[in-house]
């Protein structure tokens, strides 16, 4: 039987689909490559590290192998500390993602190329800073291990615990626990200005992965939540049981992120807490039970650090 071979149809199909791909993928790539990192983007990239979603350096998403941000009292700025073995941030292997000016400054003034020489496994640890170039007013990354001889372990040892922020591990918790199913990180370009703050600008995301914008809002936008509410205690109560601070909240309880012991090393008795809370809700007790303070290395502490960092 003489088959129809659809020669014209298949070629037109290739042309049509190829044209679509060209317009929606190839052309926008030129615009996106022109994005130059802002200071916000550098901070996000250096606090998150290589990736906050599933990746081989944190296969069970425990928030391991993540950098920490340390507030340096003496310098009046943050240091981004990558302990030995922590995978380097994206900018080290792919500095062109920073945008032309920031890449040039980071390479020349920040000596970022020396971090790339260490390899992505980062055997000795690394410390980064964000500086502003006085001439161009552009931010850039400084590889302080090369420029100032700073050692990751020394910076960490010198810092008080309240100045250490586990933001990278917290972002992993934000992704793993599905916070982004109800909270967007994308104030809209219209009416959200008044309540949730300025929408993100071009260049605010370079090097961030995943961006976790979210699409389905069932709670407030969180991109600037740290500016609206900077209380660590409020966040602690709210994560343990949101109904403690907001009786009408539909947010789930994240008490399981506390782990088994609190900040003093005492075992947390969740059953007793729930029984006391039920009694409080039933009006049998005038005050709710105390919420345990999360331990230094707990998932809850990391998540609170991340949320408070969203300025």
């Amino acid at each position: 039987m003489a088959f129809r071979e659809y020669k014209i149809g298949s070629r037109v199909f290739g042309l049509a689909l190829g044209g679509s791909m060209c317009i929606t993928l190839f052309f926008p790539s030129f615009n996106m490559r022109e994005a130059v990192s802002t200071e916000i983007a550098l901070d996000k990239q250096l606090t998150t590290g290589w990736d906050a979603g599933w990746n081989l350096s944190d296969p069970f998403m425990q928030g391991s192998n993540k950098p920490v941000r340390v507030w340096l009292e003496s310098e009046g700025q943050y240091a981004y500390v990558y302990p030995a073995g922590t995978r380097m941030p994206n900018a080290v292997q792919h500095p062109d993602n920073l945008g032309a000016i920031v890449e040039k400054l980071s390479m020349e003034k920040g000596q970022l190329a020396k971090a790339a020489e260490k390899g992505r496994s980062n055997p000795d640890g690394a410390v980064f800073l964000i500086d502003i170039d006085q001439d161009s007013k552009q931010p850039y990354i400084e590889y302080a291990t090369a420029t100032r001889g700073w050692n990751a372990a020394d910076v960490l040892n010198a810092a008080a615990d309240e100045n250490v922020q586990h933001i990278g591990a917290g972002k992993s918790m934000f992704v793993r626990e599905g916070c982004w199913w109800c909270h967007t990180l994308l104030p809209e370009q219209t009416q959200d200005w008044q309540v949730f703050g300025a929408p993100p600008m071009l260049g605010d995301f370079n090097g961030e992965s995943p961006t976790a914008f979210g699409s389905d809002r069932k709670g407030p936008d969180l991109l600037h939540v740290g500016s609206r509410n900077a209380s660590r205690e409020w966040m602690m109560l709210h994560f343990f049981n949101p109904r403690l601070v907001q009786p009408h909240s539909i947010m789930p309880r994240f008490d399981y992120l506390w782990g088994s012991v609190d900040a003093d090393g005492q075992k947390i008795d969740f059953d007793k807490w729930r029984a006391d809370y039920t009694a409080y809700r039933a009006g049998q007790s005038p005050v709710p039970p105390d919420v345990p303070v999360p331990a230094k290395d707990s998932k809850a502490r990391a998540l609170i650090d991340f949320v408070l960092s969203l300025k």
Partner: peptide
């Protein structure tokens, strides 16, 4: 043919509030 030509192109309309190129949002 209209599925192939039109339905393969409007992806950017999911991110109308993100800083994507304005021409791409309008096209989408």
């Amino acid at each position: 043919w209209s599925v192939v030509v039109f339905y393969s192109t409007p992806a950017a309309h999911h991110l109308m509030s993100a800083p994507l190129p304005e021409w791409l949002k309008s096209f989408a």
